[in-house]
């Protein structure tokens, strides 16, 4: 025979229709012989019935007609922020590589007596391609999200380093001209210096 504690744990799933046949039979048998648990089941049924009256209001056709365009604007804004971040990463990579190149130039060259028996000279630095910079940035973002940083926080960070008003010149996402790209690039460098 089911104890009251165990029976009460089963009441809500039973009312929701998600209890196996035998467990349901056991519960019904208990409810048939236990006025307290039977009353509890009745109260829970009433509470659920009241709950089902709480429908969500319809905001109306004006709202729905604006939903799609507003979403598209939000998508476009998010994509612009990502473009700016890509450009910023290229700028950062270029600065880092330029700095490395300067450092390499200032290093004293190895004395001749080392040339034959010393270690091989390090490879000459090269600028990252845009694809490589994007890949690095993507990896950094994925790592940040994997470590628990919320995507909306990343968007907030992007907003700080690249406010949307800097992008007014970017007329058509995906078809930004080389000149516009250069102008944007230079603006970003100015912001960061």
């Amino acid at each position: 025979m089911l104890a009251c504690d165990a029976a009460r744990d089963r009441i809500a799933p039973w009312i929701a229709g998600e209890i196996d046949l035998q467990a349901g039979r056991d519960l019904e048998a208990h409810l048939g012989g236990c006025p307290d648990c039977s009353a509890e089941a009745g109260r829970i049924r009433q509470a659920l019935a009241i709950l089902e009256t709480g429908e969500a209001p319809d905001p109306g056709p004006l709202y729905w007609s604006s939903f799609g365009p507003r979403l598209r604007a939000r998508i476009a804004a998010s994509a612009r922020r990502r473009l700016v971040l890509r450009l910023a990463s290229v700028a950062a990579a270029a600065v880092a590589v330029a700095g490395l190149a300067v450092f390499q130039i200032r290093l004293p060259s190895a004395p001749p007596w080392l040339a034959g028996g010393g270690r091989a000279a390090p490879p000459a630095p090269r600028a990252l391609t845009v694809a490589e910079a994007e890949a690095r940035l993507g990896a950094l973002l994925r790592q940040a999200v994997a470590e628990g940083q919320d995507e909306s926080d990343l968007d907030a960070i992007l907003d700080e380093i690249a406010p949307l008003d800097l992008l007014d010149a970017a007329d058509d996402l995906g078809r930004i001209s080389a000149e516009e790209g250069r102008a944007l690039f230079e603006e970003l460098l100015d912001e960061q210096v």
Binding site: D9, A12, R43, A47
Partner: peptide, 24 residues
């Protein structure tokens, strides 16, 4: 999920009814 549902319903029952009364 089932236990949480049961807790939610019990909580709701308490919020929707005065003490000792039926919901509503």
């Amino acid at each position: 999920a089932k236990a949480t549902f049961f807790q939610a319903v019990r909580n709701l029952r308490g919020r929707l009814a005065p003490a000792g009364g039926a919901p509503g």
